[in-house]
Each structure stands twice: as structure tokens, then as C-alpha cells.
Nucleic acid binder design. Sequence first.
DNA 1: GATGAAAAATCCACTTT
DNA 2: AAAGTGGATTTTTCATC
Lengths: 153, 153
Amino acid sequence: MEMIDEIDLKILRILQVDAKRTAKEIAESLHMTASPVYERIKRLEKRGFIKKYVALLNKKQLGKHVSAICMVSLRYHNEGFIDTFEKQIKELKEVQECYHMAGKVDFFLKIHLKSLEGYHEFVRTKLSKIDNIGVLESYFVLKEISHGTEFDI
Amino acid sequence: MEMIDEIDLKILRILQVDAKRTAKEIAESLHMTASPVYERIKRLEKRGFIKKYVALLNKKQLGKHVSAICMVSLRYHNEGFIDTFEKQIKELKEVQECYHMAGKVDFFLKIHLKSLEGYHEFVRTKLSKIDNIGVLESYFVLKEISHGTEFDI
DNA sequence: GATGAAAAATCCACTTT
DNA sequence: AAAGTGGATTTTTCATC
């Protein structure tokens, strides 16, 4: 796989902030014409640098008033138990993100729900059904200081 | 502000997974024509349900091999100290996300860097310069089980 | 990387239901 | 009030230089 150059990086920096910018607009800000920029974008997509394009929604407006970060430690750590846990977590649509961590905590989960009561119900009826969970600690988001999807490239 | 209907929700569900779907394609899957779908999308943008469109990049391919979640507790919790901390954190481009939490930990940070050594440097030269930090605990991501941007709507 | 042209999508005014 | 029609404009896409 060949390397990426500074022009590609500039294109990526623009698109990860605003995917609606057209090849033509990007070309202008780079003092180029639309075609090479278009070809570069297609190449960046094909080579996997751009994974996908998504719309970011306003979660408050859509009724998700509570965000929580949940730290989970498993009781048993055999391969099978970890795989099972991962599969079960992926089924839960409330869990937007899940990371397997190094250290005394096994997993971090980011969860969005409509209310604290909804969170209670979620833990009661779904998380608690996953029976290999040893320790479960919930932290609630008071304020999102920053929550971008961009990387510093 | 008026309510959103089931058609709007369907449009949002599609766009938060794939923002490149055209109004025409979405219209087909909803058994409509392009115009009303187009108008609905514009309205959803205008009313703020859609915040923005972004390209999601492949961080590994772009050299971000280490992700960490950092738990920070402040030493002093006066209004001024918290505001200052928030401002200082926002300046750090390595910090992709930062949440002010309820509970014994004040902030969660999500940080991406190119290596463990880079993380060491980041903590040494940047985080440690923020002098109201009382406790700092770092957890490293071993595996991303799921890391979507979608909400369950 | 640029040019130019065909195909497709966006965008908007207008009509219909 | 919301969906359809049609058409001008812009963008995407691709062949060629």
C-alpha cells in the first residue's frame, strides 16, 4: 500500500469535518481543479482511509437525554467468556460504543437513553441478563465538553 | 417546534448509517418520490436534527495505533477551575472527546495517539501542564468491540 | 493534473391531492 | 400540509489530453 501525501491529508481533514464539501469546493481551497480531487477522494475511499460517510444527529432533540459511561469487569476471563460478552453487548442497541480495555477494568461502554429511569430499566432488564459481569460501575455525563469524530491528522 | 414523524425517523436512520444515500435512493426504499424526501432532509437539517455530515476515517491507517480513555479528577472544584480545565482540554487536539461526569471522577477523555511513547509524551508535556488535575488514570483500548456514531432512534 | 462532456443528483417553482 | 411533476443548475463521473 502506497503512502498518502500532503494533499490527501488536506482532503481528509476537510471531509472529516464536513463531508458535504464538494470536490469542486475542496479543489478551490487547494488551488486545483475538481477532477484530481475527485480521483483522490475515490482512491482514499477505495484504499480504506475513508471508512464511511455519516450524518451526525442531535441526540437531545431525538429524546436521548441521558448518556452514561459504564465500566464493566467480568467474573471469568477465559476466551469463550470474553467472546460471549462481546457478542451479547453488540446486540444491545443502546450501547453505542464498547471497548475492551487493558487494566483492572475490562470494558468501557457508552450508552444513550431517554431518561435515568430508562437507564435503570436498561440495567435491570438487559445488562443484568449478561451473567458474566462481575463489577458494573455507571458514570453519568453532566456535560459534553467535546465529542468530535475527527482525528488529529 | 413541531414533531417529527415516522418517515423522518426512517430518513434519519438511513442517513446516520450512510450519508451518501441520495434523496432518490431513500425515496425508493420508502416508496416515495425524491422531492418530498429531499424537502424533509433539508427541514431536518434546518431544524437541527441533523447536526452535520462527516467522513469517518480509518485511524489505524492514519497512524493512530493507541487509543486511551483517561479518567481525570480535579483538585479544586470551583466554577472557575472547572471552566479553565474545559478550556485547556479543548485546546488539546489529541483529545477527541471529553465529558464532565457525575460521581467520583470528574472527566472522561478519549485520546488517540500514534504510539504508547506518544502517549507518554502527551501526558508528560501536555496533560501534566494542566495543574488542577488531582487524579489521572489511563486505560488503554485493546480492542474496539463497537464504535458507532449512530443512535437507536 | 487539466479539460470537457455525459450522466446523475440537487434544488426549486409549481401543481395536485 | 404534504407529495408529485418537471426543469434549471450543479455535481459527479469518466474519457482524453
